[in-house]
Amino acid sequence: MLDDRARMEAAKKEKVEQILAEFQLQEEDLKKVMRRMQKEMDRGLRLETHEEASVKMLPTYVRSTPEGSEVGDFLSLDLGGTNFRVMLVKVGEGEEGQWSVKTKHQMYSIPEDAMTGTAEMLFDYISECISDFLDKHQMKHKKLPLGFTFSFPVRHEDIDKGILLNWTKGFKASGAEGNNVVGLLRDAIKRRGDFEMDVVAMVNDTVATMISCYYEDHQCEVGMIVGTGCNACYMEEMQNVELVEGDEGRMCVNTEWGAFGDSGELDEFLLEYDRLVDESSANPGQQLYEKLIGGKYMGELVRLVLLRLVDENLLFHGEASEQLRTRGAFETRFVSQVESDTGDRKQIYNILSTLGLRPSTTDCDIVRRACESVSTRAAHMCSAGLAGVINRMRESRSEDVMRITVGVDGSVYKLHPSFKERFHASVRRLTPSCEITFIESEEGSGRGAALVSAVACKKACMLGQ
Rank of each mutant, 00 (worst) to 15 (best):
D158S: 14
N254F: 12
R327I: 12
C461D: 14
S445K: 15
N180D: 15
R275C: 11
L355K: 02
L88Y: 10
T362S: 09
T255S: 11
L324P: 01
F438L: 05
L430S: 02
Y215H: 04
T82N: 10
D365M: 05
C434L: 03
G385S: 11
L430F: 06
E399M: 10
M393Q: 02
N231P: 03
H416I: 06
Q239T: 12
G170M: 15
D205E: 14
I366Y: 13
E95N: 04
V86K: 05
Q286P: 03
K190P: 05
G464D: 15
E245H: 15
A454I: 05
P145T: 04
E290S: 06
H380M: 12
I225V: 07
C371T: 05
V406W: 00
W257K: 02
R192T: 05
K172F: 13
G343V: 05
K169F: 09
D3T: 02
S375V: 07
V253K: 02
Q38V: 08
T209H: 01
L75C: 05
L315G: 02
E93M: 11
Q347R: 06
H156K: 10
E216V: 10
E279P: 03
M238G: 01
D341C: 15
E221Q: 14
V277M: 10
D363Q: 00
L2S: 14
F438E: 01
S360L: 06
C461G: 15
I163H: 14
R397V: 03
P432F: 05
S336W: 07
D73N: 06
I436D: 00
I211T: 02
T228A: 13
V374K: 00
E14G: 14
S445E: 15
C230I: 07
F419K: 01
K104N: 07
R429E: 13
V16D: 03
D3A: 06
E443P: 01
L122E: 06
A173E: 11
E322R: 10
I293R: 00
G446Q: 15
P284W: 04
G407V: 03
E279M: 11
G448T: 08
M8G: 15
G294H: 11
L25F: 06
A6M: 15
V401I: 14
A119S: 09
N313S: 12
M381N: 01
K190V: 13
K13V: 11
D205M: 03
F148W: 11
K15S: 15
K291N: 00
S426D: 08
K31A: 06
A232F: 07
C457G: 13
S151P: 14
E14W: 04
L309Y: 00
V277R: 03
C461A: 15
G68V: 10
N350T: 04
M34W: 04
C230A: 12
E120C: 12
T361H: 09
G295M: 02
H105L: 09
G92Q: 09
M210E: 08
A378S: 08
K140R: 10
A21P: 00
E51M: 10
V203E: 13
F334L: 15
D198V: 03
A450L: 08
E279Y: 09
K140V: 07
A188R: 03
L45V: 05
Y108S: 02
Q337E: 06
R43P: 01
N350F: 02
R422S: 10
N313Y: 06
P145A: 04
L88H: 06
E48N: 08
G328H: 14
M251I: 15
V181A: 11
M139E: 07
E157I: 11
T362R: 07
K13Q: 08
F316I: 02
H424M: 09
S174T: 13
F84W: 03
H317I: 15
T405Q: 08
V16Q: 03
P284F: 12
D341A: 04
V302H: 00
V412G: 05
R333Y: 07
Q38R: 12
Q347H: 06
R429F: 14
L58S: 06
V335C: 10
Y297P: 04
N283R: 10
R325I: 14
Q106C: 12
E128V: 10
A259S: 06
A384L: 11
A259P: 09
L309S: 00
S64I: 04
L463F: 08
V455K: 08
K143V: 07
S321V: 13
R155P: 04
R397S: 14
R85L: 12
M235L: 08
H105E: 12
G162I: 09
A384P: 01
M107Q: 14
D113K: 10
D205G: 01
Q26R: 05
T376A: 09
T255A: 10
L45R: 03
M107V: 11
I366D: 03
M210F: 07
D341P: 01
G264I: 00
E372M: 15
G117F: 10
L25D: 02
I163Q: 15
K104H: 09
L304E: 09
A232K: 00
Y289G: 09
L304R: 08
G44R: 00
S131E: 15
E440K: 06
A450H: 08
S54R: 05
F123I: 05
K31S: 08
V91F: 12
N83S: 06
E435G: 05
M87T: 04
L301I: 15
S441F: 03
K420D: 02
V427C: 05
C252R: 00
L276Y: 13
Y413G: 01
T354L: 12
L314D: 05
A370K: 00
C233I: 01
Y289S: 02
Q24I: 12
S426W: 09
D194I: 06
Q18D: 15
G264T: 02
E52Y: 10
Y108I: 09
Y108R: 02
A114W: 13
H141F: 07
C371G: 02
A387L: 02
V71M: 15
A384T: 11
P59W: 05
K458F: 05
V427S: 12
H416P: 03
S453M: 08
C434M: 00
F419Y: 10
M37W: 04
G407Q: 02
V181M: 06
T65H: 06
P111N: 14
C371Q: 03
E339R: 00
I126R: 00
K296W: 12
D278L: 02
F334W: 14
L20S: 00
Y108W: 13
K296Y: 12
K39F: 05
V182E: 13
S212R: 04
Q26N: 15
A201P: 10
A379F: 04
E319D: 15
D341E: 09
D267F: 05
R186Y: 07
T103Y: 07
I293S: 12
M462P: 11
C213F: 02
D42G: 11
K420H: 01
S375M: 13
